[in-house]
């Protein structure tokens, strides 16, 4: 394992939403800070920096990860996905994002990026979740504005829509 010097900066390279990125970080720099302040990917938010609120959730090599509990140096060479990579194009929202908008599943939007990442990751593997499963999944996220139920509803709607879209493609 490489040893990094505490007081110097080290190059960190990884793939962010399919594009190569690089920057320099002290070993102690958190991934959340690196994404936000070095790379300008400010869509990932920080609500607690101790792993409870879920706002900072990103996907690292296919795993849901709290970026506030991860060091930037740890993701060198990894594949990262963040909220900035969810929409199919800059002026169009994805199915899950649209469901959020339709259901008023966000107010201030500060918690939303983390919740979207958890759901995106989960729905890919569990296309037909129950309400209880979604509630269980999202119990690791705190939202202070919405009271959660619109989020659950958006998730279930998006799951149904994604499934029927897939069916249509496979039927065709």
């Amino acid at each position: 394992m490489t040893r990094l010097k505490a007081d110097s900066r080290h190059a960190v390279r990884f793939s962010l939403n399919g594009k190569p990125v690089e920057g320099e970080a002290e070993p102690r720099m958190l991934l959340s800070d690196f994404l936000r302040h070095q790379l300008g990917a400010t869509g990932t938010h920080v609500g607690c920096e101790h792993g409870v609120c879920g706002a900072c959730t990103v996907i690292v090599d296919g795993m849901l990860t709290r970026s506030c509990l991860t060091l930037a140096a740890q993701v060198d060479g990894c594949e990262l996905r963040t909220v900035e990579g969810l929409a199919p194009s800059a002026d169009r929202l994805g199915v899950l994002q649209q469901a959020f908008r339709r259901n008023h599943a966000l107010q201030c939007g500060f918690c939303t990026a983390g919740i979207l990442m958890s759901l995106d990751h989960y729905l890919a593997k569990n296309p037909a979740p129950t309400e209880a499963e979604i509630r269980d999944l999202l119990s690791g996220h705190i939202c202070r504005c919405t009271g959660y139920t619109p989020i659950i509803k958006a998730a279930l709607e998006a799951a149904a829509e994604l499934t029927s879209a897939k069916k249509e493609t496979s039927d065709a």
């Binding site: 869509g43 969810l86 994002q97 908008r101």
Partner: peptide, 14 residues
């Protein structure tokens, strides 16, 4: 919502 849902919110630390 469109901006907030795609990581383009403009909060103070952003």
């Amino acid at each position: 919502d469109a901006a907030l849902l795609s990581g383009r919110g403009r909060f103070i630390d952003d």
